[in-house]
Write a protein that binds this DNA or RNA. Structure first.
Length: 198
DNA sequence: CAGTCGATGTACT
DNA sequence: GTACATCGACTGG
């Protein structure tokens, strides 16, 4: 199995957002394989998208969005959460795909440990609660700004092609949790999948 | 259930 | 000072 190559990422962001559905996100973490199937994504683009961090140009935070497609862009928000994106398109274009939800496949015990550690309520979480949101995904996979800029063609964090499925299984909607450019139909998810964020 | 709201750091106006 | 690509604790029915 080979990881997705730079060619995959260096395409129109909306296309990459759709094609990432079903792919496998793999992190080797202290000798353990953590694997999740991508079931929900959102596209963000510098041009015509006021919600995109890159909309007003390059800054210290968003600089990775302008790098060549195939990098990981991680940012910190709400004083306590991380979200991760896959950078798309050519160098100089500020664009990325937010990874919003995974179906957990391997390393569920470690994911669960990571998720429960930070909570007040230490009760056992259902599997569907492990990765059903962008900040939950980062918690489960222990992703922080330490991974910002990581090249996804290299270990320990990579994406692999998963089972293919028909276009009709892809749902589309407006993006979640934003106010700017909320009408853009740039959220994509696998229909009837139990692990989508909502 | 649903709805509300506090946490808590950083980027940017 | 304000907003923020969120989450989960808490409230009331």
């Amino acid at each position: 199995m080979k990881p997705l190559t730079i060619d995959f990422y260096q395409r129109p962001t909306v296309t990459v957002a759709q094609d990432l559905l079903g792919c496998l996100f793999v992190r080797l973490f202290r000798g353990v394989r953590l694997v999740g199937r991508v079931v929900e994504t959102e596209a963000y683009h510098q041009v015509g998208d006021a919600a995109c961090h890159a909309h007003k140009g390059k800054t210290a935070r968003n600089r990775v969005m302008f790098e060549t497609g195939g990098k990981l862009y991680v940012y910190f928000t709400y004083g306590m959460h991380f979200c991760m994106n896959v950078v798309t398109e050519a160098e100089g274009v500020g664009s990325a795909v937010l990874l919003r939800a995974f179906e957990p496949l391997e390393g569920l015990e470690i994911m669960h440990k990571h998720r429960v550690e930070k909570r007040v309520n230490k009760a056992t979480l259902a599997v569907k609660e492990l990765c059903s949101g962008p900040a939950k995904v980062c918690q489960a996979f222990a992703i922080s700004t330490a991974q910002n800029g990581h090249n996804l063609s290299e270990e320990p964090i990579q994406l692999f092609r998963g089972e293919s499925f028909t276009q009709e299984k892809i749902g589309t909607s407006g993006r979640i949790g934003i106010s700017q450019a909320a009408a853009l139909p740039w959220r994509f998810y696998i229909k009837d999948n139990n692990y989508v964020s909502r």
